[in-house]
Amino acid sequence: MRISALLPSILIGAVSSARSMTPMAALAGAHLAGRPTPGRLILLGHPLFTFGALAMGVGELFGDKMKSAPDRTVFLGLLARVMSAGIAGSALAPRGRERTGAALAILTAVPLAYLTLAGRERAMRRVGQTRSGLMEDALVVAAGAAVVGASVRRRGLG
């Protein structure tokens, strides 16, 4: 199997590094649109988790702008990234390669969390917390939607 087959898992890990709930929200949106993922979609097959993922994705976008928002590299922030990247990376991996997809997504998300935090801190010094957060939101949400959208469409499953 070529690494390109696992590229969506790696890319969704990068998305998770900046916004932990965006991958889950993007997958929930694809699920609601009837677009199956290549790998098994763990948890999001249940309506409670589907709508919960969407709500948490939106909530994270608002919460990130608060002055009291913790850094993404605190323990709970990294744990959320590991869980989200693992589930999303598994769902976007080819059938039978879910564990590899999950591992690659996690191995991408955790170190990139530190790099995306450094970039955000630089942007905050230049344009402030709210504006930098909105710019990061636009980039990350678009990337998450693009990775998930291309993955379900590219594989001809939808």
Score class of each variant (00 low, 15 high):
Ser151Ala: 13
Phe75Gln: 01
Arg2Gly: 14
Ile106Cys: 07
Ala69Gly: 07
Pro23Trp: 11
Gly34Val: 08
Leu107Trp: 10
Gly101Leu: 08
Thr116Leu: 02
Asp137Cys: 00
Ala80Glu: 07
Ala30Trp: 02
Arg155Ile: 04
Arg120Leu: 15
Pro111Thr: 12
Met1Gly: 13
Arg131Asp: 12
Met56His: 00
Arg40Asp: 09
Leu117Lys: 15
Val152Asn: 06
Ser20Pro: 10
Thr100Asp: 11
Met66Glu: 14
Leu112Asn: 04
Leu32His: 06
Ala26Arg: 08
Ala55Leu: 13
Leu41Gly: 10
Asp71Ile: 01
Ala53Gln: 01
Arg125His: 08
His31Val: 10
Glu98Pro: 06
Pro94Gln: 07
Phe75Trp: 14
Leu78Lys: 00
Pro36Ser: 11
Ala5Phe: 05
Glu136Gln: 14
Met66Cys: 08
Met21Glu: 09
Ser16Phe: 04
Val148Lys: 07
Val148Glu: 05
Leu54Phe: 07
Arg40Thr: 14
Val140Ala: 06
Ile3Lys: 11
Leu7Lys: 08
Ala80His: 02
Thr108Arg: 01
Thr50Gln: 06
His46Gln: 13
Ala93Asp: 07
Lys67Pro: 06
Ile87Pro: 05
Ala55Arg: 02
Leu139Asn: 05
Ser9Gln: 12
Leu139Asp: 03
Pro47Glu: 10
Leu48Thr: 13
Met24Arg: 06
Ala150Lys: 02
Leu6Pro: 06
Val127His: 07
Ile10Glu: 07
Gly45Ala: 08
Ala118Lys: 15
Ser16Glu: 10
Lys65Thr: 06
Arg126Thr: 09
Leu139Gln: 09
Ala105Asn: 10
Gly29Phe: 11
Pro36Thr: 09
Met83Trp: 12
Arg126Leu: 15
Ala33His: 00
Gly156Leu: 07
Gly133Pro: 13
Gly133His: 13
Arg155Glu: 15
Gly89Ala: 05
Ala25Thr: 04
Leu134Ala: 13
Gly158Glu: 11
Leu78Glu: 02
Arg81Glu: 03
Pro94Gly: 05
Pro36Leu: 06
Gly144Lys: 04
Arg131Lys: 14
Gly29Leu: 15
Arg72Asn: 11
Gly101Tyr: 07
